[in-house]
């Protein structure tokens, strides 16, 4: 394996887990902060206001 290939493997092994964590994190924040389904909205209502998300 060449040095270049080694380097790109190292980068991929760093980037992929980070990318997956970013997608998971964005998913959670979208769910708790932005999805307008009424049960979710009512449960998260006070937090959405206090955290500065657009709520209603």
């Amino acid at each position: 394996m060449t040095t270049k290939a080694l380097k790109s493997t190292a980068t991929a092994s760093q980037i992929l887990p980070a990318l997956f964590a970013v997608v998971l994190g964005l998913g959670i924040v979208t769910l708790t902060g932005h999805v307008q389904a009424s049960t979710l909205h009512d449960a998260a209502h006070d937090v959405r206001h206090a955290t500065g998300f657009p709520c209603h």
């Binding site: 887990p17 964590a21 970013v22 994190g25 959670i28 924040v29 708790t32």
Partner: peptide, 13 residues
Amino acid sequence: LTYTGYALLMVAL
């Protein structure tokens, strides 16, 4: 939950 989501973004970066 919200801040765990933010923590995932932050720790990933």
